[in-house]
Design a protein around this nucleic acid. Structure first.
Length: 466
RNA sequence: GGCGCGGUAGCCAAGUGGUAAGGCAGAGGUCUGCAAAACCUCCAUCAUCGGUUCAACUCCGAUCCGCGCCUCCA
């Protein structure tokens, strides 16, 4: 089995192999921390999480870098308006982002790096580009001269030979020779934070940070670079231009982009104002796992229409998975092994991984899980599923949860301890034995109030937290 | 105008030459003190129109519709 990924560069599905055969060097464009990140952003970060977990499941070692953009126009504007430094301003949103990511169970990349901590490297990169005549200065700012990079447009597959007729090309506040040229180093404007540099006091343009940080930690040619589709142009196109102009080597081997999350048929974006943050959704009572499942359950290259009905469906689907796990662990099964079931477990496991291998087709992978669950439930009802089959079923669930990570309920504040629950269950059992069903139901209802659901099965009482 | 993605059951969503996975919702049934869980049954001809083929949702052409990028943006 080998993972195949859609490479934006070639527009084809390609078998993925890391350069050195073992370690995957992956770079992710992280958030600009001027506000809370919305769940559209988290769609992309969830995709990246699924990707890295799949790579880990394939036996690779991850060296994954994600940047935090902590200097940028909106940050400067908002920080100035609030009368605080940009670091003070961004710290709160950086923390919120990392906290939210943890709530969504996104694995922390091996390194999370900050733009403002790499200014000297960026300055050096701009100087090197200037020395090799890839830049020019206009109004004190340094620009990348696109005309010096022949491959420009190869990622977005755009032909820049003509005008961009019909497109809105606004005149930048700085003068540029060519509409495609982009700023590497912005000269300081009154009141703005700035760093000293040979090009003059100023701050980095947006694109240079990713090139510099990616290459600093991962080398001149990295394996995978991810982001949302909206970054393909111009951001990633510009990253390629800068990086390859600097090194003369291919910057990224696999470009992988996630499609957008939509709300009511439109892109969720801060500028449209139609966005939800994680906090908004949690406040409505949805669990982090439901959100994670919803974001992860459709293939990353398909636009995903976010709805609260969808969240509810996700939540119910997770219940089904958890109930199955509960049943595996609670049902009293006859000793033995059903060979057919055992083979079925192996087959389902393969189907699950085959779905992931197919460009992270999570919907297909999930289908393999659910189909298996239905069949095994039937077999258990029929008494054809034996104790020896449990391991195979649990292995499938373990592999599933290593990627999806939704089986364990998020901890809620307060609540009963396991022993308290067991004591109440014992009380109820007594009441049931004496056919005092009113009392038994009262205990059950009390537990429901406390977030614990009891289920009477032929093998005894089982419970789960809601 | 250019580039790209997509239109499959009430909703979400796989499949992509041989007569439509899966999830949610809904209806009926089994089980149960009741409930829950689980199981069973039922519920689509794949935007439209042409063409190729023994055979098309799947290939080709045209049309319609939706979305994204081309400007800060996940």
């Amino acid at each position: 089995m080998a993972l195949r990924l859609h490479n934006t560069l070639t527009q084809e599905l390609e078998e993925f192999r890391p350069q050195d055969g073992n370690t995957v060097r992956m770079y992710t464009c992280g958030p600009t921390v001027y506000h809370y990140v919305h769940i559209g952003n988290f769609r992309t970060f969830t995709f990246q999480d699924i990707l890295r977990r799949t790579l880990i499941a394939r036996g690779y070692v991850m060296d994954h870098v994600m940047n935090i953009t902590d200097v940028e126009d909106k940050i400067i504007r908002n920080a100035m308006a609030a009368g605080v430094t940009i670091n003070e301003y961004t710290a709160q949103y950086t923390k919120a982002f990392l906290d939210d990511s943890a709530v969504l169970r996104l694995q922390r990349p091996e390194r999370v790096v900050f733009a403002t901590e790499h200014i000297p490297e960026m300055v050096a990169a701009v100087e090197k580009l200037a020395a090799s005549d890839h830049t020019y200065v206009s109004d004190g700012s340094t620009y990348f001269k696109i005309g010096t990079f022949p491959g420009y447009g190869k990622l977005s597959h755009t032909n820049f030979s003509g005008n961009i007729a019909g497109a809105r090309v606004e005149v930048d506040e700085y003068d540029k020779d060519d509409a495609r040229d982009f700023v590497l180093w912005k000269s300081q404007k009154p009141g703005e934070p700035a760093w000293d540099a040979s090009m003059g006091a100023g701050r980095p343009g947006w694109h240079i940070e990713c090139s510099v940080m990616a290459m600093k930690y991962l080398g001149e040619t990295i394996d995978i670079h991810t982001g949302g589709v909206d970054l393909v142009f111009p951001h990633h196109e510009n990253e390629i231009a800068q990086s390859e102009a600097l090194t003369g080597k291919q910057f990224v081997r696999y470009w992988v982009h996630a499609e957008h999350l939509m709300v009511e048929g439109q892109k969720m974006s801060k500028s449209l104002g139609n966005f939800f943050t994680l906090r908004d959704i949690l406040e409505r009572g949805y669990s982090p796992e439901s959100i994670r499942y919803l974001l992860a359950s459709s293939q990353y290259r398909k636009q995903l229409n976010f709805t609260f009905d969808g969240l509810k469906a996700a939540s119910t689907s997770i219940d089904r998975l958890r109930n199955f796990e509960l049943r595996l662990k609670n049902d009293k099964l006859a000793i033995g092994l059903n060979q057919q079931i055992d083979a079925r477990s192996t087959q389902a496991l393969q189907a699950f991984h085959a779905g992931l291998d197919d460009d992270l087709n999570t919907a297909d992978a999930l289908a393999a899980i659910f189909e298996y669950i239905r069949e095994v439930n039937s077999a258990m009802d029929a008494g054809e599923f034996y104790a020896g089959n449990v391991a195979g079923a649990l292995k499938l669930l373990a592999d599933f949860d290593a990627i999806f990570d939704v089986l364990t309920p998020s901890q809620k504040e307060g609540g009963l301890s396991d022993s308290e629950i067991d004591a109440l269950i014992a009380d109820r059992a007594k009441a049931k034995k004496s056919r005092d069903f009113a009392r038994a139901d009262a205990i059950r209802n009390e537990l429901i109030e406390l977030g614990v659901i009891l289920e009477d099965t032929k093998d005894g009482v089982r419970w789960k937290r809601k």
